[in-house]
Design a protein around this nucleic acid. Sequence first.
DNA 1: ACAACTACTTTGTTTTACCAAGTAGTGTAA
DNA 2: TTACACTACTTGGTAAAACAAAGTAGTTGT
Lengths: 112, 112
Amino acid sequence: MDDTQLMKGILEGCVLSIIQKEETYGYEILSSLENSGFENLGEGTLYPVLTRLNKNGYISCRKAKSPLGPIRKYYSITEEGKNYLENFKQVYQKVIHNANQILLERNEGDLC
Amino acid sequence: MDDTQLMKGILEGCVLSIIQKEETYGYEILSSLENSGFENLGEGTLYPVLTRLNKNGYISCRKAKSPLGPIRKYYSITEEGKNYLENFKQVYQKVIHNANQILLERNEGDLC
DNA sequence: ACAACTACTTTGTTTTACCAAGTAGTGTAA
DNA sequence: TTACACTACTTGGTAAAACAAAGTAGTTGT
């Protein structure tokens, strides 16, 4: 089964949360996400998220040379981004709570 | 903030889970979802989900008269639907677990 | 006759993840 | 030195799903 639909919207919040912890760049965020269990994420999935967050003013961008590859684009969270993330977390937790109630509820047939 | 993106994919599992509990019909599922906190769900959101689940063979359909309105379409879960739902729950829990790790992690600045 | 509630349908829009391919810089080994 | 591997970002096209808005109909109550 495919998890692409479940990823919708969640990814954006996760990326913003990672950037909030410290200034970082795309390629590093990718491996950070992989370490947290999001294993099948392509670059073509992540980079548009960063572009979108930047365009919406939730993160800002700074270019810097890499010691072992092409130039990096370092992103850091803005004040607007912090507010957005707090709000996102609340909505996320509400949705998850509602879904858990429906999905994980005991059924009649369940043993104890 | 908008939760439409977070709803993607989650809704399908919730609807299937509700049908698994007992045979039911669209309009009732809608109020069931509203009772669980999904308050802004339109009919134009739910009915396509039912059509999709039916077309994929996860639910079956039976028509029956309503005591107070037009004819109802009662849905019940199929064996294939049960398998799909179990699988869905596993993927769902994995995604949520991964996301929680990133979103709810303590930051350096946090007190205690 | 008309409104209110029940109940399902359809059409079009928007957002987003994903795939595939491309562009480039740096280091390593045949 | 040529080729490969790794780093790092970009772009274009596709498909899936939620949603808004409008419509169709049956039943009940005033």
